[in-house]
Amino acid sequence: MRRRTLPALLLPLALLLAACGGATSASTTGDTDGKGSVTLNIGDQKGGYEAILRASGELDDLDYRVKWSTFTSGPPLLEAVNAKAVDIGGVGNTPPVFAAGSDSKVVVVGASHGSSAGEALVVPKDSPLRNPAQLRGKSIAVAQGSSAHYQLVASLKEAGLSVSDVKLNYLQPADALAAFSRGKVDAWAIWDPYTSQVLRTTKARVLTTGEGVVNGLSFQVASPSALKDAKKAEAIGDLLARLQRAQDWVFKHPEAWAKVWAKETGLPYEVALDAVKRSYGTRVPVAIDPAAIASEQAIADTFADLKLIPRRFTFKEYVDTRFNRDLPPSSTAPRSYGKASS
């Protein structure tokens, strides 16, 4: 019974491999909104930009048109940006590193900083493991190239270990859940909303989180060709401002957003609310400043050392700071609702 039902828990989240996720992809095109001669092609994920902008009222009174394309994760979204099929889209802190490492034509134009509590390494509740230093020789499930992958690497380093000291099982969330629930792996590195879902629906507990070891950043990434188009660049600036206001709305209305998000994704409301309070509602739009660039450079260097990206590169060369406006520094503390359920 358990083996048959637990993997199904993640099926509603098949479209939420969250910007942070691996290479699984699927895309569809949505309808258009607004008016005017300019059409901004936005790469989205289920329950992402379009949902949050609609719920907050920020899709009202656009003076440009919007065409939505939906992706299951960050890497294929950035492939579309590279191919000029998408003008801009939102991803986590790791997909831009893999895209730039492959010499893709992408430019980071916006950023937000949130809590890293949802970037977690979980173990069964009855596990004898009590701290990351005890992971030596243990098997760990993780999605390769995801933000959870970097959080795992950083957490191991913090504990005096390296990836060579553990047994990595590169698995996407549905397969990882099956392995975790059957005791095939000792631990699982995940991100929200998976973290919130697993803590709500399985006998799991958090061994460690990304707090204090990862940067908590997420990004909006645009096509260089769109940025060279004056009208599209203006629309991108407007979109970033609307996303900033929408994020403020989420923080002020977490329950309302959780209801919308649950409907969009198929998540139980309680799981959605946990994820909002633990991760997504904590985000603060921030400037892409030298500290943010240096932090991403460290991620790039780490994956280059692990030979998981094909080349070393300078992250700063993939950044455009024209939209920083008067945003606070990237080190700005995440918003807090208090402790989420676990």
Rank of each mutant, 00 (worst) to 15 (best):
T70K: 12
V142W: 09
G145T: 10
H113D: 03
G145Q: 10
V97G: 00
K84A: 05
Y150V: 11
G74P: 01
A80W: 01
A83V: 02
V107C: 03
S73A: 15
A120P: 14
L78T: 04
N131M: 10
T70M: 13
G101Q: 08
G110F: 09
E119A: 13
A133R: 15
Q144E: 13
D126V: 07
D87G: 00
A100M: 08
G145S: 11
A143Q: 15
K84L: 00
G118H: 07
D103S: 13
A133Q: 15
N93C: 02
S102T: 09
K84C: 00
Q134M: 15
V86N: 01
P76A: 12
E119W: 12
V86M: 03
H149N: 14
V107A: 05
G90E: 07
A120W: 10
T94D: 01
Y150W: 14
A143N: 08
S115P: 11
S139Q: 14
P96C: 06
S146M: 07
G74M: 02
P124R: 15
V108I: 14
G101H: 06
R136V: 12
S104G: 05
V91Q: 02
S146D: 10
T94S: 10
S127R: 07
S116Y: 04
V97Y: 00
Q134G: 13
G118C: 09
D103I: 00
A99W: 09
K84D: 10
V106Q: 00
N93H: 01
G145M: 08
S127C: 10
P96D: 06
F71I: 05
A141W: 11
G118R: 04
H113Q: 14
G101F: 04
V108Y: 03
V153F: 13
P128N: 06
K105P: 01
P132H: 10
V142K: 12
V109A: 06
V106S: 01
A154N: 08
